[in-house]
Nucleic acid binder design. Structure first.
Ligand SMILES: [Mn+2]
Ligand SMILES: [Mn+2]
Ligand SMILES: [Zn+2]
Ligand SMILES: [Zn+2]
Lengths: 155, 155
DNA sequence: ACCCTAATGAGTTTCATTTTCATTTGCTTT
DNA sequence: AAAGCAAATGAAAATGAAACTCATTAGGGT
């Protein structure tokens, strides 16, 4: 069980929701783009390719539903819209995102942050249920590119 | 020098911007609310108390300007609008926010995250310029309240 | 096949933020 | 102090993501 097209229907049924064609279609888009962080509009555009009659409102509702039943989680990459990615029930805390300010590439890392939550609880009594680490900077590729242009770019 | 009403004009002049009455008024609101994370609407409402003729668009523009010149930084607390707080030029990385899911209180902490940036650079070659840690959970107070209601809340 | 409710989709609405543009203001030059 | 001018402002309109409305459709049980 988990998040494949098969065990998915069980999840919905467990929660009392119907596995409609739209929800299946959106799920397939999600599954085919696990490496990406899609926005509602992007999911909408992708889903329309196989299901042209789907409405944008349904996509918004479906993404929220998927988040509620634990299939998705949303993140904000500060680009003007909410984005979604598969939720990892194994992982207590979300993974982290590195966002390149030059090429806008998003790199995922899985630095262990458990100590962080522990320390916060010990020092503040605050019980963290979820946390997000988002870092902006320059990725290796862009860093190397800039390096290159030092020597042979004398106008 | 730095971010007091006095050194402020220098900052603007250095960048070629005029220290207008509106900008001074917004700055005072910011200085008087350093412990808070105000939204544009909130800054607008506060500023109107002393400067009733200021327009909302000017507040938006001013907040963006202040961020550009390094006086402010924006954060998203996932409550539907951008929020601003004083930027701390001493601190290389932003402080962290704990957001209580029960009472919506925002707690600030200053856990050192330099090791995080170092590790990321060593492992990925990604140079972090700024990063944000945002954690959701239950604050001590709300946690204690819930505890209390266990014994004497039998319907 | 029938029923009932959940689900959908087109259109409308909300609301934060941005843009437009005519007017005003802060400075610099007379 | 008056003139000149670009920067800054404010009112209003525009934008765009997300939520809502409501008439219609489609699951799933009977
Ligand atoms: Mn991710
Ligand atoms: Mn803060
Ligand atoms: Zn890059
Ligand atoms: Zn609380």
């Amino acid at each position: 069980m988990g998040t494949n097209a098969a065990g998915f229907n069980n999840i919905l049924q467990t929660w009392g929701y119907k596995p409609t064609t739209q929800r299946q279609a959106v799920l397939e888009v999600i599954l085919k783009n696990q490496d990406k962080h899609l926005s509602a509009e992007e999911v909408f555009a992708e889903t329309k390719k196989t299901n042209p009659r789907i409405g944008l409102a349904t996509v918004y509702r479906t993404l929220q539903l998927f988040e509620k039943v634990g299939v998705l989680q949303h993140i904000s990459l500060d680009d003007g819209c909410m984005r979604y990615e598969m939720a990892d029930p194994e992982q207590k805390y979300e993974h982290q995102h590195l966002i390149c300010e030059v090429c806008s590439d998003v790199i995922e890392i899985r630095e262990d942050m458990a100590f962080f939550a522990e320390k916060v609880f010990l020092q503040k009594g605050f019980r963290i249920t979820t946390h997000q680490v988002k870092a902006f900077g320059i990725c290796k590729k862009c860093s190397d590119d800039l390096e290159c242009n030092h020597g042979n770019d004398g106008k």
